[in-house]
Design a protein around this nucleic acid. Structure first.
Lengths: 192, 192
DNA sequence: AGCTCATGTCAACGGCCGTAGACATATCAT
DNA sequence: ATGATATGTCTACGGCCGTTGACATGAGCT
């Protein structure tokens, strides 16, 4: 038989992929359901049928990146800064790419009221807590938040604002800077 | 004479102030001109008359924070990290507050297509370049960008995403962390 | 007082959005 | 082949948006 023209599971998956690409490039409000539907070559109304609402579609998009769990448990705390630093620069590793993409999506839509709570939850449950669990020493939650803030800060300038000095920066230099920042972020506070 | 009920300059100023407050709390797209007008007790159409368009109003809002120039020229590079660190925590100093507010406005609307270019320009001309000019050593543009990324990163988590560990953090601890991060950001890259 | 012009209001336009329900069509079981 | 059902389309609604031009009203001058 010739390949099915009508296949619910396949179109759902295609819409999810298209949505992910869109949310990767624009914020929650600026992504139109009609854009996503057009990408797949399908009618808008299908979004409603398969995902219920735009918010639920967005939730599902964030769930995609969750499948590859954050950080192999074998990763020790000393490798952690290097891993996080590689998130911005490494392009090949599939898991890393997915993690970095997920974070970028959250960052892009961070100031969209409708998306805010969804993002907060996803961030906590599938990023901050897993990282904090790997950190020895005091205040793991604060330090994992600081580490994440390094990623977000550099990404805002490099990718979202497209500010020259960081976007055009040499990859190795960038990785060294990230590593320095992440070391500082993960350092325990001596209170001095 | 009793204070003028109709005063163009005053209402313009009031609308500018109201707009600034709104853009401080929500992103470019999520701030409606009708909201601003309602805050002032005035009709929407006045926005068009006084500012031309929403984009120009936004431009003007960013110009407000520019009046207090960034960093007294007497500030040496050693005090710079402390100054930047105080941006997030200090509430009293008027200039600092205005600088921090300006940055928050830019951050909030960073992923709004209509606002993006305006922000890029304002950031470069009135933040990145002034700071870079104060930095001795190599790659001042890169290092000033990294310093700014520290502010943006922590602000995203603390203020925009309202993520627990950083929003509820002790002020002194926060300042120490910021200082550590900023030192790392401003350190020259030895290439090692 | 009356004239004039700056100042502010009103109504409406066209456009895009997310959502919903009625409708069409392809696929599969019988 | 025929009916049943999953799959996808079409149309349209109500709502908010930024912007515009015609209109009202206040203030200040003579």
């Amino acid at each position: 038989m010739p390949p099915r023209v009508k296949n619910a599971a396949a179109t759902r998956e295609a819409m999810l992929a298209a949505a992910r690409q869109r949310f990767l490039q624009e914020s929650y409000e600026n992504v139109g359901l009609r854009d996503i539907a057009r990408d797949v070559g399908v009618d808008v109304a299908l979004v409603g049928r398969y995902f219920g609402s735009k918010e639920e579609l967005f939730k599902e998009v964030l769930r995609v990146g969750k499948k590859a769990d954050w950080l192999d448990p074998t990763v020790t705390s000393v490798e952690l800064p290097a891993y996080l630093a590689s998130l911005s620069t490494e392009e090949d590793d599939a898991d890393r790419r997915q993690h970095a993409e997920g974070l970028l999506i959250m960052l892009r839509s961070a100031s969209s009221p409708k998306a805010a709570e969804i993002i907060r939850e996803a961030l906590r449950e599938s990023v901050l807590e897993p990282i904090a669990r790997l950190l020895p020493g005091k205040d793991p939650e604060i330090r994992s938040s600081l580490a994440l803030s390094v990623f977000f800060g550099t990404t805002v300038l490099r990718t979202i604002m497209a500010v020259g000095p960081l976007s055009g920066c040499d990859t190795n230099a960038m990785r060294r800077s990230m590593q320095r920042l992440l070391d500082a972020a993960l350092t325990e506070d001596t209170g001095a």
